[in-house]
Design a binder for these strands. Structure first.
Length: 627
DNA sequence: CCAAAGATGAGGGGTATG
DNA sequence: CATACCCCTCATCTTTGG
């Protein structure tokens, strides 16, 4: 996780570098992929280092920047010499505290068919945090092995690039280099800094010329990256795919980026052929829903998956390819249960759930919520035109339609006495489906009100209302939440098992979907430790907790990073172990509606999934110890 | 008058299904 | 091939509160 984790504070604080940082990641991957055709990658970079002035400290710095302790690195270098960074890395992995999770990562990629050597190399280049980058690098290696070797002479930048990138990637989080990022720094110091980062003087000065004297270090390195990537792309891509030179730097950068993205997709498709594909069930009934006859009451859990504690993980079903395989792999290879909440309420919500709960003797919350639009929103029935065939709403999302759109629809429809012509109907229906609009008057559609969303999702009315929550925030929090009836159905098996109540660790709690589900099931909440970064959401849960006269204790923690082994141990010794670890990690880098950063499980927010795993592992270890 | 919070509107593509 | 769908982000405008 990089320095400014999304778990604390909003992204707004870091506007200035977010985009660049992400792009640099991608550049680095593709660049390194091209400049490193064979197995000498590591040696090569080591050589480049030793030719630099203070090679030993640079090697040390490199590994320290990867998150290893300085003493450890020193020990590893002493044992293995500084020439073979591969050996050093291996040694570090062995005695690192994070060794277990790293070897898990290595195993993960080895399981995908990559050689250990390649995997280690890729991890070394990308760090162990960004598995997507690692995968991308591995895919590039694989592609390069297949295709003709790339000429080395083509690239002037090979000198220590790998290590330089690691150094650079560190700049954002290392406070003592902040001065260099100051756009006011004078030209000489910028030049010096760039060369210190390993770029050639020629590159640095070209970049300064092109970007102007006021450009920041970030802009300059971006430019250099783009120049390098352009070269790399030229070498990699067949001539017909080359784009004409584009003078607009930003545009050009985007072009290169898009090209490489496509390339990656192509590779993944080819590479993924051998892999098993995880299909979403159709209809999406999971192991069964209360309203349909299909039901599965038995399954065999992998040995490693069996609790305590019970755990329950949720995320969007329609994630990019491979994401659910990865999630499942990290959660003890349990088969995900994909369920569409349209079988529980009047709105669709396709989600995947991975849990180790029993699946027999489930029961639903009563009363069963209305399952079509007219029952859920009776006032719309009067105005619903016969040519709108919808009976269910689409997924309730975080944003709602603009007034301008509903106005356009009104104008389009009110021109006609009877039914509008087919093309108008098509347009209106398209927009209604896209924005979940309902008919609230003659020729009048409208987005759902927040309290209607609360009802559809199974929350008490006004659950998110007031207490400092704005309208937009309500939509956002609700859109990011559980459908309570669906989750409650899965959790219902706990009721008989824990008549005295349970201790819950609720990660990424949001507005408390899990807590509300358990409460509505009649499961007593003894202790709830709730981790949620949004203060507004924490207040919502706190208010709900107090007004429902809970007899247990609610502890809220704002930052998931705070929940380390020590803190967990403390909590568990005071309150007893946890019976249930529950949470849905952020989906915004997985969700289809995200136009900008649908980066997969390694995205800035969605990568918090790995914190879920980390914490679950810690709880499991401590629970096993105390048995 | 200003700054900050809130609301608004514009905006693409991956993945599955037929 | 077309079609449907998706726990969305960003820049900009508007409102609020001092």
């Amino acid at each position: 996780m990089n320095g400014h984790s999304s778990a604390n504070g909003d992204d707004d604080d870091f506007d200035w570098d977010t985009e660049d940082e992400l792009e640099v990641d991608d550049h680095a991957v593709s660049r390194s992929g091209v400049t490193v055709p064979g197995e000498e990658a590591v040696l090569q970079s080591a050589k480049a280092n030793s030719s630099a002035e203070s090679s030993s400290s640079k090697v040390t710095g490199h590994f320290v920047s990867m998150g290893f302790r300085k003493e450890m690195v020193a020990k590893a270098i002493e044992e293995n010499g500084e020439e073979n960074t591969n050996l050093i890395l291996e040694a570090l992995l062995q005695y690192s505290e994070a060794g277990s999770s790293k070897s898990k990562l290595i195993d993960h990629f080895k399981g995908m068919g990559f050689s250990e050597e390649m995997v280690l190399k890729a991890i070394q280049e990308n760090g162990d945090e960004n598995t997507d980058s690692i995968l991308e690098t591995l895919l590039t290696y694989a592609a390069l092995e297949e295709s003709a070797p790339v000429q080395h002479a083509d690239c002037d930048y090979e000198g220590g690039f790998l290590d330089d990138f690691s150094d650079f990637s560190d700049i954002d989080s290392s406070s003592d280099s902040e001065e260099f990022l100051n756009p006011d720094s004078d030209e000489e110091s910028k030049l010096l800094f760039l060369t210190k980062m390993g770029y050639s003087e020629a590159e640095a000065s070209t970049a300064m010329e092109r970007c102007g004297p006021d450009s920041s270090i970030a802009e300059l390195t971006d430019f250099i990256c783009a120049a390098q990537i352009a070269k790399a792309a030229d070498a990699l891509l067949p001539p017909e795919e080359k784009k004409p030179f584009c003078t607009d730097f930003k545009k050009r950068r985007k072009l290169d980026y898009d090209l490489l993205k496509k390339k990656k997709m192509k590779l993944e498709r080819r590479f993924g052929d051998g892999d098993e594909v995880l299909h979403l069930p159709n209809p999406m009934l999971g192991f069964g829903v209360p309203t349909e006859p299909f039901q599965r009451t038995q399954r065999v859990l992998p040995e490693a998956a069996i609790g305590p504690p019970y755990f329950y993980y949720e995320n969007v079903a329609l994630a990019p390819k491979g994401v659910w395989q990865t999630i499942s792999r990290f959660l003890y290879d349990i088969e995900p249960e994909f369920v569409d909440s349209k079988y529980f309420c009047a709105a669709a919500r396709k989600r995947g759930y991975i849990h180790n709960l029993p699946i027999d003797n489930r029961f639903p919350l009563v009363p069963l919520p209305p399952r079509n639009i007219h029952e859920a929103l009776p006032l719309t029935k009067k105005w619903w035109p016969s040519w709108d065939p919808r009976t269910k709403l689409n997924c309730l999302q975080t944003c709602v339609a603009s007034a301008r759109l509903t106005d356009r629809i009104r104008k389009a429809v009110e021109n006609y006495d009877g039914d509008p012509p087919a093309n108008i109907q098509k347009f209106v229906l398209e927009q209604c489906r896209k924005w979940n609009l309902v008919w609230v008057g003659r020729n009048k559609v409208a987005p759902l009100e927040p309290d209607e969303v609360e009802m559809l999702l199974g929350f008490p009315k006004n659950h998110t209302r007031g207490g400092g929550s704005s309208r937009t925030e309500r939509y956002k929090s609700l859109g990011n939440s559980f459908q309570v009836d669906t989750v409650a159905y899965h959790l219902s098996v706990l009721k008989d098992m824990f008549p005295g109540g349970i201790n819950v660790l609720s990660l990424f709690s949001g507005i408390g979907g899990a807590e509300v589900a358990l409460y509505r099931l009649g499961v007593r909440l003894k202790t709830v430790v709730s981790v949620e970064k949004s203060e507004v959401n924490r207040n919502i849960v706190r208010c709900w907790w107090e007004q429902t006269n809970q007899t247990g204790i609610l502890i809220d923690i704002p930052d998931v990073q705070e929940l380390n082994g020590e803190r967990l141990e403390q909590l568990m010794s005071i309150h007893g172990g946890f019976d249930l670890v529950i949470g849905g990690s952020p989906c915004n880098n997985l969700a289809g509606s995200n136009r900008h950063h649908r980066d997969g499980l390694e995205g800035r927010e969605s990568s918090l999934f790995f914190d879920y795993c980390r914490i679950l592992d810690l709880v499991r270890c401590k629970m096993a110890e105390n048995r």
